[in-house]
């Protein structure tokens, strides 16, 4: 598993949930301790040179893994969209080959379940009213389609409600939320209004960065509505959460 830097620091429960789901399905999870960050923040903000050593680090850490599962759609999108080009930019044949080979085995968490394992029902139980936000990178760059929704529909006890404007960006966009805070806030306001209109207890997604953004506003507005990563819903069972 590649937890990603911000999940490691801010959303450890998501990583725990991924471990729980995968182990429940009979897989062995390994966590290379040297992993840090995919380089997305640097790359997308215009610091491509700074992102390069982070890519090399990622490759070194994971090149022997059978499959790399990442509970963050934007980090996987970063790797798939930009790593091949970055590797070619170095002119290092070995690095190019390693990146190309490794990327075939890198999966976003829900994608790993639906596409690699061909699963929809992962034996989860989650007795709550939930709405799903399609994170931009998962939707458009990874083509997750209705995969996450199929996983959610198979959860026992769940009351899944459709989100209006499900494909519209929440306004996070990394440094965008700070550089263009006003516009970002207006985008966020539309998203939280849509979430509140569903009367859901929680909003889920495949990316904690969007969720952190949405959660930030929901908490400020004292709505009582929470956000929860898809993995944490799928980790739910009768015995636990």
């Amino acid at each position: 598993m590649f937890i990603t830097c911000y999940n490691d620091t801010l959303f450890p429960e998501t990583g725990m949930a991924v471990v729980r789901v995968l182990e429940r399905l009979g897989h062995t999870v390994e966590f290379p301790a040297g992993q840090t960050c995919c380089g997305q923040m640097h790359y997308n903000t215009g610091y491509q040179a700074e992102a390069l050593p982070l890519m090399e680090r990622f490759v070194a850490q994971f090149k022997d893994a059978e499959a790399v599962v990442v509970p963050s759609s934007s980090c996987v999108a970063m790797m798939r969209e930009h790593y091949p080009k970055m590797a070619r930019g170095t002119g290092k044949a070995q690095l190019i080959a390693e990146v190309d080979a490794l990327l075939l085995r890198v999966f976003e968490f829900s994608e790993f379940l639906t596409k690699r394992l061909g699963l929809e029902d992962v034996g989860a139980y989650y007795p709550h009213r939930v709405t799903y936000h399609a994170s931009c990178h998962g939707l458009r760059n990874l083509g997750l389609g209705d995969g996450p929704l199929r996983l959610l529909k198979a959860v026992r006890g769940i009351d899944l409600v459709e989100l209006e404007g499900v494909e519209q960006c929440c306004g996070f966009g990394g440094t965008f939320a700070v550089k263009n805070a006003e516009v970002s806030s207006a985008m966020l306001a539309e998203k939280t209004t849509a979430v509140l209109n569903t009367r859901a207890e929680a909003c889920t997604a495949c990316d904690n960065s969007c969720l952190m953004h949405i959660q930030g506003a929901l908490h400020r507005q004292r709505t009582g509505v929470s956000t929860v990563h898809l993995a944490e819903i799928l980790a739910g069972d009768e015995g636990g959460r």
Binding site: T9, E13, G15, A177, V178, H219, R220
Partner: peptide
């Protein structure tokens, strides 16, 4: 400072006491 753009309309959850890697270890 500039980060105030975030907290104008959003809160930020505090960093959990234990990171994932600490839990894993």
């Amino acid at each position: 400072g500039m980060l105030g753009g975030w907290t104008k309309v959003r809160d930020l959850k505090e960093i959990p006491k234990e990171s994932f890697r600490e839990w894993w270890e």
